[in-house]
Amino acid sequence: MTVPQTGARWVLAGAMMFAGVTHLTVARKEFQAQVPSWVVDNTPLDEDAVVVASGVVEVMLGAALVILPKERRRIGAILAAFFIAIFPGNIAQYLDRRDGFGLDTDRKRLVRLFFQPVLVAWALWSTRR
């Protein structure tokens, strides 16, 4: 691993753990507003359960990036898959025009969609030789 890759992995780990903790604490309501209605309508989960589950997963993945260095390639692939799995929620936020985290215009919500592939690439690049 190069120094930039290691640094990027650690930054990503910190960002994931921070995001996960905020899912569980201070930004819980904000994240609930971003859960797509089709998830709640088609599963036994409510918005809070989805937010809590995703927060726990984010904390676990962030921690795993740091504490399981021999598994970093596998963790990176899982994290990339996680980013892909939550992307439909970002699309739903755009299509349903749901505000959250300062994304209060169609343009801001649309621009955000283009950052998801960056996260996928970041997860993969920072965990590969």
Rank of each mutant, 00 (worst) to 15 (best):
Val111Pro: 00
Val52Ala: 10
Asp41Tyr: 02
Arg109Phe: 00
Phe87Ser: 03
Glu47Val: 02
Tyr94Phe: 14
Glu71Lys: 15
Met1Tyr: 11
Arg28Lys: 12
Arg74Pro: 08
Thr105Glu: 03
Met16Thr: 05
Thr2Cys: 05
His23Gln: 02
Asp46Pro: 06
Pro69Cys: 07
Leu79Phe: 06
Asp96Ser: 14
Trp10Pro: 01
Val66Lys: 11
Arg109Ala: 01
Phe18Val: 11
Leu65Val: 01
Asp106Ala: 06
Gly76Pro: 03
Ala27Tyr: 09
Gln5Asn: 11
Ala121Leu: 12
Gly14Val: 03
Val11Ala: 14
Ile91Cys: 13
Val40Lys: 12
Thr22Ala: 03
Arg73Trp: 05
Ala49Thr: 01
Val40Glu: 11
Ala19Lys: 05
Ala77Gly: 13
Glu30Ala: 14
Ala33Leu: 05
Ala123Trp: 08
Ala8Leu: 13
Ala8Gln: 08
Ala64Trp: 03
Trp10Ser: 13
Gly20Gln: 05
Ile86Gly: 00
Arg129Leu: 12
Val56Gln: 09
Ala49Cys: 00
Leu12Glu: 03
Gln34Leu: 14
Gly100His: 10
Ala53Met: 14
Ala13Gln: 03
Arg9Asp: 05
Ala53Tyr: 01
Val26Gly: 14
Ala15Val: 12
Leu45Cys: 04
Ala13Leu: 03
Ile75Gln: 00
Val59Leu: 10
Met17Ala: 04
Phe31Val: 01
Phe101Asp: 04
Ala92Gln: 03
Gly102Trp: 04
Leu79Asn: 02
Val3Pro: 00
Ser126Trp: 13
Glu71Leu: 15
Gly7Arg: 15
Arg73Asn: 10
Ala121Arg: 09
Gly100Ala: 04
Val120Gln: 07
Leu24Tyr: 05
Phe87Ala: 12
Ile86Pro: 00
Asp106Phe: 10
Gln93Ser: 13
Ile78Glu: 02
Glu71Tyr: 15
Phe114Met: 14
Arg129Glu: 08
Ala123Ile: 08
Asp46Lys: 14
Ser54Ala: 12
Thr25Gln: 00
Ala121Asp: 02
Glu71Gln: 15
Val51Pro: 00
His23Val: 07
Phe87Cys: 01
Gly20Thr: 04
Trp125Ile: 07
Val59Ser: 07
Ile86Trp: 05
Thr127Ile: 09
Pro44Trp: 15
